[in-house]
Design a binder for these strands. Sequence first.
DNA 1: GTCTATAGTCGGATAGAC
DNA 2: GTCTATCCGACTATAGAC
Lengths: 237, 237
Amino acid sequence: MKRQQAQGTEKETRSRLIEAGLKLFGLHGFEATSTRALAQAAGVNLSAIPYHFGGKEGLYRAMLEHIVRVKLTEIGPGMLCVMATCGNPKAGREELLEAMRQLVRTMVSVMLGSPESRSFSQIMMQEQIAPTAAFGLFHDGFFAKVHGVWTALMGRLLGVPDSLELRLRALAVMGQMVIFRVGMTGILRVVGGDKLTDEHLETITRLCIQQVEAIVAGCASALPEGPAQPAQTEAGI
Amino acid sequence: MKRQQAQGTEKETRSRLIEAGLKLFGLHGFEATSTRALAQAAGVNLSAIPYHFGGKEGLYRAMLEHIVRVKLTEIGPGMLCVMATCGNPKAGREELLEAMRQLVRTMVSVMLGSPESRSFSQIMMQEQIAPTAAFGLFHDGFFAKVHGVWTALMGRLLGVPDSLELRLRALAVMGQMVIFRVGMTGILRVVGGDKLTDEHLETITRLCIQQVEAIVAGCASALPEGPAQPAQTEAGI
DNA sequence: GTCTATAGTCGGATAGAC
DNA sequence: GTCTATCCGACTATAGAC
């Protein structure tokens, strides 16, 4: 019994460690996750971590790069589509609203739907609480892009140019969806059960869409009036 | 040099440790915080932790009980006032809206205003990511109460009885404020600076109030029509 | 490239002096 | 009630066999 587990014996070792890191770093944070636990969860030898990644920190960074890449692949096309609509001066109100609805569906689905989204969100939250050296990787690679799309979309829907206020408004709007991820543990106590059902997700999607529609309707009318000029942001997907 | 620091030499030791726990547990989480770091930050001897609290876990629990009590004192009166308005069948629309505005102001102020709110939020987030045995303490003592108030208020404003959908809607509404706390690190990169200024807080408060008003206006009209029957929730402050 | 063995450090808890 | 000294287990990383 020399080898502890059946192993791919190739550099599958790397991906197994990244997978284990995704789970354990998310659950316990960077410091509280031991290399022993990582190696055991991945079914590889302890020494594989310094060998392949130069150490625990290298594994963490590789894991972060991995998930940012994966998540961006999931949402990238949808965001490009929305940005295209926002950048098109001829896009009508209904077209913009439909782009917004699609964006809400994507966010709810990506954040709450897939089971692996849990680990991703946990790591994002860990980074928000106590940012590591790799925080910029997540922020520039993911958060800023999503926020940029929402800012552009809200700008068009409200008919206002880019501004700090618009960006804060976009954040508040995103918050309606994000809270279901960051407050998941408490929310499960409210709705009962140990995971959100598909029915819950549909209700949440419907409510969020309805509320964002109400916001763009109610807040645009509070402005000088003029749903015209497009807002440009720097989000380069 | 027997004594390392000037010490209160009484059971001030307990409160010094709780203060240190609030800071360090919030920053690094339970597991990643060492008793040595706690003792040093509090300026007390390492053995004081097992002596006064039975161990690291006891200190964590005592710290959690402490902050839940403190935060509830901060927001309790305001919540009672809102609940009274919600429970009053004669309360008019404008009265309910004013209660909502006050609730938004309180939440923004308590979550984002005071400097010590940072540690509190960090610990709440840690518990959401990886709940400890003490999670119920925070959930029942704090989160459920705030959520209950928002649910009751939204029920009255929308004129619908309590339901799962209403509770989810209340969560989404709360998310507009909560995101500025949980996403603070990323948001500071958006607005620049290392803390939110008073001006930012005012803008955020104003935007949130305006958006909640838009939501209750826009979403009530999408219902069978009938802004009458009050919604009761279980929130017993 | 994968393993064992081990170095060197730090973790929480306790015993017992005062 | 506060201190020092200490136990013993767990930690990351490395050296070197294969």
